[in-house]
């Protein structure tokens, strides 16, 4: 475990380096052999990034920590689902995290218990955020820059979808736009994100697909 930790960069904030990918794959392999220490090590490396995402979606610490547990237990139960050829373990964990968080958010909404009701707080990128973003990791600043470059309507639709868990019909109602327009904004926004992230990705190692 000590070797795996020293191979990662800054406090496990990103899984971008080839060394950290190797360490993650090693941890997943150990998890598959029933090594709970490896699960704890993976949690130490990537739990904070996953919890940040989940908390942003759920806006409730207790619910977010619960979902984080579910995600890592899912890793424990089915490590064979991780495909190293498709991306890093961190990417896999973030995909699971977002999926579980949205499931929980929608379930809470149906019961009238969600706290993420202030859709004006769905905004995550602005000139002001970029200017005061002194503490963000380099990747965080890059992502915000890519988002800020999107047309406002596309960014809004993506934020409502990705962090708000709203459906296309709900986004149309919230933004007072026709459904077809919302679909177009989402597709075009995602295409621009794809191009923007590719421009920042390193060739040999990134979260972008192979």
């Amino acid at each position: 475990m000590a070797i795996a930790l020293t191979q990662t960069r800054t406090a496990g904030e990103d899984g971008h380096t080839a060394g950290s990918r190797t360490a993650d794959a090693e941890l997943i392999a150990r998890i598959a052999r029933g090594d709970a220490d490896a699960l704890a090590a993976l949690y130490d490396l990537h739990g904070s990034r996953a919890l940040g995402l989940i908390s942003r979606i759920l806006s409730d610490v207790e619910e977010a920590e619960d979902v984080l547990q579910e995600v890592f237990l899912q890793v424990w139960r089915a490590p064979e689902r991780f495909e190293p050829s498709r991306g890093s373990a961190l990417t896999w964990i973030l995909i699971l995290s977002r999926s579980r968080a949205i499931d929980r958010l929608r379930a809470l909404r149906r019961r009238g218990r969600d706290r993420n009701v202030d859709i004006s707080q769905c905004s995550i990128a602005s000139d002001q955020d970029l200017q005061r973003d002194a503490e963000s990791a380099q990747e965080g600043a890059r992502v915000r820059r890519v988002l800020a470059a999107l047309p406002a309507e596309q960014r809004r639709a993506l934020e409502l979808a990705y962090f708000g868990g709203f459906t296309q019909t709900e986004i149309a109602e919230i933004t007072h736009a026709p459904l077809g327009t919302v679909k177009t904004r989402l597709r075009q926004g995602m295409m621009k994100l794809r191009e923007g992230f590719k421009a920042y990705s390193r060739r040999e190692d990134s979260l972008a697909p192979l």
Partner: peptide, 16 residues
């Protein structure tokens, strides 16, 4: 889904 995972960096991480 792999590309959208980048969006997790748009929000701060939180120590559990």
């Amino acid at each position: 889904q792999h590309e959208l995972a980048f969006l997790a960096w748009a929000v701060p991480s939180l120590t559990p």
